[in-house]
Design a protein around this nucleic acid. Structure first.
Length: 110
DNA sequence: AAGCTGACTATGG
DNA sequence: GCCATAGCCAGCT
């Protein structure tokens, strides 16, 4: 299912700056709801992708920066988000719901 | 080859 | 809202 990875990258790359989404939302958009872990796994393999993948815009459903530990630096994810105007308290995105970007909704699936 | 792991989520108490 | 469990499935050992 290498296509799944590419699909994930395509969606993640379409996330607008200053917005974030969840693994589950992406999984659901791709029709693989329940396999949110695979989205996270795709992120883990994102370094293999030719283009840059804004994995920092993908967090868990609570808006928690669960993947920060997988970045080059533990604070890289937080800094990238704050650089886009997103407030981050510890590992938690402030006003997460306001920044949430649902691919299924925004990409014309409403 | 068989089992374990994990950047998750939904559900029940 | 928090804690415990269970489903999920591709990749790694």
């Amino acid at each position: 299912m290498g296509d799944f990875f590419s699909k994930v990258y395509e969606v993640v790359k379409q996330i607008p700056p200053g917005r974030v989404t969840s693994y589950g939302a992406i999984a659901k958009y791709l029709g693989t709801a329940g396999s949110a872990r695979m989205v996270g796994w795709a992120m883990n393999a994102s370094h293999s992708h030719n283009r840059f993948v804004p994995a920092h815009r993908v967090v868990n459903r609570s808006g928690l920066l669960t993947g920060k530990n997988h970045f080059d630096a533990p604070n890289a994810m937080k800094e990238l988000l704050e650089n886009e105007g997103i407030k981050v308290k510890g590992d938690q995105i402030v006003n997460f719901k306001n920044h949430f970007w649902d691919p299924a909704k925004e990409l014309g699936m409403d």
